[in-house]
């Protein structure tokens, strides 16, 4: 048993040494709000940036964040062409609630369902909300855990920075 564990640790040290900095979205199957299986390798936006936001119907700060961004989303899209995937980690207790919840609030995000936290785990997300910003080349360039009102402004600055690297 011990030998097995030591080799495991060894593997990661070896792997760490051969790692480079690129940072892509792992390919994981989740569901769309229409029940179809969706592979996250297909998260594309014609070379424009993508935001992935992990949330749940029972998570207050998540709903606060998505509500704040909903008011700005149209403007953000006009300026940057960004597409937002709001990934709900609601399990079987609440996953049927997601669609009515989103529609009532009039959110225009692409909604994905991750009921057994497969994508959440693949992206090493701990507590939610957790937001990722992905540039036009598909590289994760910024991530943020938690939400305080106003955090959407920082996200927008990073978003502007990624479409036009000269703006900071």
């Amino acid at each position: 048993m011990k030998a097995k564990k030591i080799t495991l640790l060894f593997l990661f040290i070896c792997a760490l040494l051969s790692v480079n900095a690129q940072n892509k979205i792992p390919a994981v199957n989740v569901k769309t709000i229409d029940g179809a299986t969706f592979n996250t390798a297909n998260m594309v936006n014609d070379g424009k940036p993508i935001i992935i936001d992990f949330w749940a119907t029972w998570c207050k700060p998540c709903v606060q964040e998505l509500t704040a961004i909903a008011d700005l989303y149209e403007d953000w899209q006009k300026v940057t062409g960004v597409k937002i995937y709001a990934v709900s980690i609601d399990d079987a207790r609440n996953s049927a609630r997601v669609k009515p919840f989103v529609n009532t609030r009039g959110w225009e995000y692409e909604i994905l369902l991750d009921p057994n936290a497969d994508l959440k785990r693949a992206l090493n997300v701990g507590d939610i909300p957790h937001t990722f910003l992905i540039n036009g080349k598909g590289e994760i360039i910024y991530q943020h855990a938690g939400y305080a009102p106003g955090d959407e402004n920082e996200l927008y600055e990073k978003l502007l920075g990624c479409i036009n690297p000269e703006v900071k």
Partner: peptide, 30 residues
């Protein structure tokens, strides 16, 4: 099991040569 795990870095190297690019390590801590 040891041999299997030991082969990971070599697999990774083979992939690299096949232009898949080097691997990535990510994780979290709490």
């Amino acid at each position: 099991v040891t041999l299997f795990y030991l082969s990971f870095p070599f697999l990774a190297k083979a992939q690299e040569m096949n232009k898949f690019g080097a691997g990535e390590i990510h994780g979290n801590f709490q």
